[in-house]
Design a protein around this nucleic acid. Structure first.
Length: 893
RNA sequence: GCGGGUGUGGCGGAACUGGUAGACGCGCUGGACUCAAAAUCCAGUUCUGGUGACAGAGUGUCGGUUCGAUUCCGACCACCCGCACCA
């Protein structure tokens, strides 16, 4: 970018300055500045501050006990944004809390006989201490823990409000039940059909559970995605696919008389391809379909088949390998367009009860799965769509279904139409026919999204505030009795839910009729806790309500979060649930106006590291010495000198032992080095490879900045900062202001790696080595002072402690953390002269230096006058000369 | 299977809307300082040929559009991620 003019640094390396230099010591410096910020209460945010609001939030951590490098990366990025916005003059909200309910606390309780609450709070204390060493600009006054009754009280209130608003439902659902641990398992906790802790074979059980009716908002959750301009497209797409909207037709097929169980007259089927209705050759229904159950009552063989299907797990692996099987029920349906056309009804193992109507019609020619099924059971295959250029007479489907667009054949009145037209035609015709007192078909929009099951048979979660009474059914706990507190005196010596076998806790009287009743002993899914914490941060002091409407959102309110930062692993569930929650909270009066919780979303990449494997298994990076011998990297075990294999680069994990402890890094290099390294090199959305060499490099830079500042400090202390517009000093000022502009833009775009590169460049520029002309330097002092000040201010969001130390060294007043972001001078970021590359036939052959405002003709003439252009043209006139102002010249010969 | 992304030196990565490919960092090579080492500083570092100025090639592969393509279009290859019997 800029050639280094040696003269500016002429006086830097005066011998005295070199002698005076001491290495920067983060261990002494960092706690000092952390205390200074805390004493000045710089990061405490007031809700009544009239300045522009900016809410930056990182996904809050689970209090596992120790922070890991992923946290360091996440919170560093958020902190850069927070400190930058603060310097830009905004009133910044940057809070921190704890996602504190969850299974690990219970596991610890079972394994180590500790109390989950004590375990959790001890972890919070430890992690908070670690986070504090990072120098994050957090408002700790707003700290919340979701396991605190002052938090979950409001969650219980909202559960009841949602219930009253019709957003909560209690219904039966199939769940994975671990018969040993006596709890429901999430799908991810079932491994090869067995419970992940107990190893017991997991059963499918029907349990009555609580659900949030997220499907009732499917349409708006989908539509809302379009308004999220500052979300990654990838995440929006994943959510859209998850919600899975499809438009189709609900068709009611009449059951053939004499074949159906008593009282059954029709079969409802959902399809997105009604155009293929003349290619239908069978119907397939789920094993749990009511018609299947009825048919099985008088058919033991069918009964047996249904049981078999039920026992095949729903795990991904089971589905992949499971053979497509069916069982003919003997029931027949009549084709809607042909009373003489009968189709068999099968129970099939591949039909899902909870999508559509749990029944399909099979069109073998247009669907591979249906084709396989038809071939297996000898059912007809009628091609109904063929490629435009095919011949209808000879078009056959045998082993491979035709799924692409085309033209309709063998479909009576649909022949010759495109499938799209045919869809419309079938929809229109069938809507006009009635069956019973309803139309034979209705247009229907179907979603893949399911309701959100929130009941968990576990202790360490938010109790569901419901009392079950024999007389009154499920009764809400009265608001005045909230919170329903978790009892502290629980034991984990028996399997199952401790709340369930607590001697007294669940026994209460019914709030309605006063009779003896029992509490719901289930607790809420921990995703509920994290679906509204961002709203609670806006006023965690409010004891009366979850939110304070005057500050939470709307005019002058905090929400939506302006910038949310976290891992891609939450792309669907957490973010979708939060989007559901703001809508539900708005409907129940806990929010005013906000449409979406997170205006800007950034998904950061993981921290990855090499793995090392010795004869005894995986070993940690700390135990290994890696050397570069003749370009070949070799690892040895420090303790024994054994050779260690260097394995693939993977996400830091305990199982691979490729973890680096942030504590160790901060202790030996300081938080600034860790922060700087996290921001360097890798773009923030991609994975960053943690390497010892990289950290060393970052640490060297810390020392280099410190040397630059401390060596120049004596000369700068009494100088007033000023930029220069001409002379040698202008070169300096231009470099500084160009960098200032670029770094601001880069941070705003969250391109931290680019901002880092610019700061490196400027630091190199300012600390260029001893040149020749000492006298020139004195004139440059004001510009240099300004340059150093700007450098320090620019790096402050990333390396806040070092910035303070530097600021103090040059005699700056106050704290850098309080300084505004300087404005660049527009005059200084453009040059009077530009260097244009000159191409001949598209290949660069030289440069042309010319005034910036030179017009096209002048540029062309100057270019043609250049020696190497003349030579290349060999006296002939050019065929064409392309001049792109301030960009390039291309001479075509 | 469906959907999406990525591919640039030894490595991480830059290159704004088509305009100097390789900024910046790591590593490496040579040098200075030192009795020596560390630290620091300087120079070099895409590849090939040449002492050299220089010439040629080059952004996964093949082709196209253009004065000019890492960038746009088409086909393909590799890897990664998400969803997955969704009717």
């Amino acid at each position: 970018m800029v050639k280094v003019p040696r003269q500016f640094s002429a006086f830097f390396l005066s011998e005295k300055a070199v002698m005076a230099t001491e290495r920067y010591n983060p261990r002494a410096s960092e706690p000092k500045w952390q205390k200074a910020w805390a004493d000045a209460k710089l990061f405490q945010t007031r809700n009544d501050d009239p300045r522009q609001k900016y809410y930056v939030l990182e996904m809050f951590p689970y209090p596992s006990g120790r922070i890991h490098m992923g946290h360091v990366r996440n919170y560093t990025m958020g902190d850069v944004v927070a400190r930058f916005r603060r310097a830009k003059g905004d009133n910044v909200l940057h809070p921190m809390g704890w996602d504190a309910f969850g299974l690990p606390a219970e596991n610890a309780a079972r394994d180590n006989r500790v109390n989950p609450r004590e375990w959790t709070y001890a972890n919070i204390t430890a992690m908070k201490g670690q986070l504090k060493t990072m120098g994050l600009s957090l408002d700790w006054d707003r700290e919340i823990a979701t396991c605190d009754p002052s938090y979950y009280k409001h969650q219980q209130k909202m559960f009841l409000d949602f219930w009253r608003a019709g957003l909560v439902e209690r219904k039966s659902a199939k769940v994975n039940w671990d018969p040993v641990d006596m709890t429901v398992l999430a799908n991810e906790q079932v491994i090869d059909g067995r419970g992940w802790r107990s190893g017991a074979v997991v059963e499918q059980r029907d349990l009555t559970q609580w659900f949030f009716k997220i499907t009732s908002m499917a349409e708006e959750l989908l539509d809302g995605l379009d308004t999220l301009d500052r979300w990654p497209d990838k995440v929006k797409l994943m959510q859209a696919n998850w919600i899975g909207r499809s438009e189709g037709l609900l068709i009611r097929w009449p059951l053939a008389e004499g074949t159906a169980p008593a009282g059954e007259t029709e079969l409802e089927v959902y399809t997105t391809r009604p155009d293929t209705i003349f290619g239908a050759s069978f119907m397939a229904i789920a094993a749990d379909h009511p018609l299947a159950r009825k048919a099985a009552e008088k058919n033991p063989a069918l009964q047996k088949f249904i049981e078999e299907v039920r026992q095949t797990g729903t795990s991904v692996a089971a589905l992949e390998t499971a053979e497509k099987k069916g069982f003919d029920t003997g029931i027949r349906v009549v084709h809607p367009f042909d009373p003489s056309w009968f189709l068999p009804v099968y129970v099939a193992n591949f039909v899902l009860m909870d999508y559509g109507t749990g029944a399909i019609f099979g069109c073998p020619s247009g669907d591979q799965r249906d084709l396989d099924f038809a071939n297996k059971y000898g059912l007809p295959v009628i091609p109904v769509v063929m490629p435009e250029d095919a011949d209808a007479e000879n078009f056959r489907i045998t082993e491979e279904a035709y799924v692409d667009d085309g033209v309709m054949i063998h479909s009576r009145f649909l022949d010759g139409m495109k499938p799209k037209q045919a869809f419309e035609e079938v929809a229109t015709r069938l809507s006009g026919i009635s069956i019973g007192n309803r139309p034979m078909a209705e247009r229907k929009v179907q979603f893949r999204l399911r309701d959100w099951l929130i009941s968990r048979q576990r202790y360490w979660g938010c109790p569901i505030p419901v009392i079950h009474c024999e007389n009154c059914g499920a009764v809400p706990v009265p608001d005045a009795d909230l919170p329903v507190r978790l009892p502290g005196d629980v034991t984990f010596d028996k399997p199952g839910n401790p709340l369930d076998h607590h001697p007294t806790w669940k026994h209460v009287s019914c709030p309605q009729c006063g009779k003896a009743a029992v509490r719901d002993t289930d607790t809420m899914d921990t995703f509920v806790d994290s679906s509204w914490y961002f709203a609670r941060f806006t006023d965690p002091w409010n004891e009366e309500a979850p939110t304070t409407l005057s500050v939470v959102d709307g005019k002058g309110g905090w929400l939506p979060v302006n910038q949310y930062i976290g891992g891609i692993e939450h792309a669907i569930l957490h973010l979708l649930y939060s989007r559901f929650f703001v809508r539900a909270m708005k409907r129940t009066g806990h929010l005013n106006a906000v449409e979406e919780p997170f205006e800007g979303l950034f998904t950061q990449g993981m921290v990855v590291h090499e793995t090392y494997k010795g004869p005894q298994g995986w070993v940690t990076p700390a135990e290994v010495k890696v050397e570069d011998i003749d370009g070949e990297r070799r690892a040895t075990l420090i303790a024994t000198g054994e050779t260690i294999a260097i394995g693939p680069i993977e996400k830091m994990s305990k199982s691979r032992k490729n973890v680096v402890d942030p504590d160790d890094i901060i202790a030996s290099y300081g938080a600034d080095t860790a922060r700087w390294f996290m921001l360097s090199d890798s773009p923030p959305e991609r994975d960053v490879i943690w390497t010892a060499a990289g950290v060393e490099g970052a640490f060297r830079f810390v020392q280099r900045v410190w040397r630059l500042v401390s060596e120049t400090a004596p000369a700068l202390q009494s100088v007033a900062p000023a930029f220069a517009t001409d002379g040698d000093a202008a070169v300096l000022s231009k470099a500084v202001h160009k960098t200032l502009k670029a770094v601001g833009e880069d941070i705003e775009r969250l391109s931290f790696n680019k901002a880092v590169a610019r700061i490196y460049e400027l630091t190199n520029f300012l600390s260029a080595p001893l040149g020749a002309i000492e006298s020139a330097a004195a004139d440059c002092l004001p510009a240099l002072r300004e340059g150093v000040e700007i450098l320090v201010t620019m790096m402050a969001p990333m390396m806040p402690h070092l910035a303070e130390e530097c600021w103090s060294a040059i005699g700056g007043k106050g704290l850098v953390a309080e300084r505004p972001w300087p404005a660049f001078n527009p005059q200084l970021v453009v040059d009077d002269e530009v260097v244009l590359p000159v191409q001949i036939n598209g290949k660069k052959r030289g440069d042309l230096t010319i005034r910036r405002d030179a017009d096209q003709l002048a540029v062309e003439q100057a270019a043609l006058a250049l020696d190497f252009v003349q030579k290349a043209l060999g006296g002939k006139p050019p065929r064409k000369v392309i001049v792109v102002p301030q960009r390039i010249v291309n001479v075509v010969g």
